[in-house]
């Protein structure tokens, strides 16, 4: 057979297969897929609108519908440039507290959960502790705002304790970053502990017992057995905590307060970006929002596979 003949034969089988698929599709399935496509479109429209808006010129924004693509002359990357310029320093500041707070709360949560799950404690001691931790999850942010500022401004003068750091030339506004780290760790600890505890309860107790009989102490069992097996749950907790801390505006407003501060996190700057007395700069706001969301997106992509495994566990 010549090449052409083979290609023709291929095409015929492909057509035949297509025909068979079409014939086997029931009307119910057609409706199902139609609904799914509509729903997917419905969910994606806001993102699509945001993206196209962010690359439109001011005239294109007025001239076209929000979801419609800009015309040939309506495209500009200028707003992205402005947004990146404005947000870049905030990005650094945000990473400065979001990364340590996420890692510390995940590690502490894991250790706490291990302590509450694996060793044989008396139930009478364990239960109140767990109840306390669960209660911690349900304390609303708003309820702690006043005590939180009181705590940091009047009881713990972190700015004074770190005077040697300011002496090195670091602006003392960065005391707010340290406060944010500690606050977010404290606030995230309950949910992290609970997530790890659920995961550790599904771990084979016989495996842990086996390790104990093999001569490993509690600490060694954690280091060599439990921690290496915690990967998927770490992915879940890291993604959850990072997104939560990165996006939180309330604590940053209370602890850092002004966007003009050198230690201002990205959310604070983003809040004021593109709004002025002349009105809203929609393109700039969209570009800023997308730029600020990039790290959370990166975390999802980076830990995605483990995340799926951890969620299903």
């Amino acid at each position: 057979m010549s090449d052409a003949e083979i290609r023709r034969a291929d095409a015929t089988t492909r057509v035949a297969r297509l025909r068979r698929t079409v014939q086997q599709t029931s009307p119910g399935e057609v409706v199902l897929y139609a609904v799914l496509v509509v729903m997917a479109g419905f969910y994606l429209v806001p993102i699509e609108s945001g993206l196209v808006t962010s690359i439109k010129t001011n005239t294109a924004i007025i001239g076209t519908a929000p979801y419609a693509p800009p015309g040939a002359n309506g495209v500009t990357l200028e707003k992205w440039g402005t947004a990146i310029d404005a947000l870049l320093r905030g990005m650094g500041n945000s990473l400065l507290y979001a990364v340590p707070a996420t890692v510390i709360s995940a590690v502490l949560g894991s250790v706490t959960a291990y302590g509450l799950t694996m060793p044989t404690w008396k139930r009478a001691y364990k239960a109140p502790l767990i109840a306390l931790i669960v209660a911690g999850i349900f304390i609303p942010y708003q309820a702690v705002l006043v005590p939180l500022t009181q705590f940091w401004s009047q009881w713990v003068g972190i700015a004074q304790h770190l005077s040697f750091v300011w002496a090195l030339g670091v602006p003392d506004d960065y005391a707010g970053i340290v406060e944010l780290v500690i606050t977010h760790v404290a606030y995230g600890l309950p949910i992290c502990t609970l997530l790890f505890r659920t995961y550790y309860k599904t771990m084979s107790t016989e495996m842990i017992e086996s390790a104990r009989l093999d001569g490993a102490s509690l600490r060694r069992v954690y280091r060599r057995i439990v921690l290496p097996l915690s990967g998927p749950m770490f992915a879940v907790v890291l993604i959850y905590q990072f997104t939560q801390i990165w996006n939180d505006l309330l604590f940053t407003l209370v602890l850092v307060s002004t966007e003009s501060s050198p230690a201002a996190p990205v959310v604070l700057i983003l809040a004021g970006l593109g709004s002025s007395l002349e009105g809203q700069d929609f393109a700039l706001r969209m570009a800023g929002a997308f730029f600020a969301a990039l790290p959370t997106l990166a975390v999802y992509i980076f830990f995605g596979e483990e995340f799926a495994e951890g969620v299903s566990a």
Binding site: M207, L213, I225
Partner: peptide
């Protein structure tokens, strides 16, 4: 003392 469990309890990692 060494113990062999019904589930074997091997360390999967």
């Amino acid at each position: 003392i060494a113990m062999v469990f019904q589930s074997y309890a091997l360390y999967p990692h």
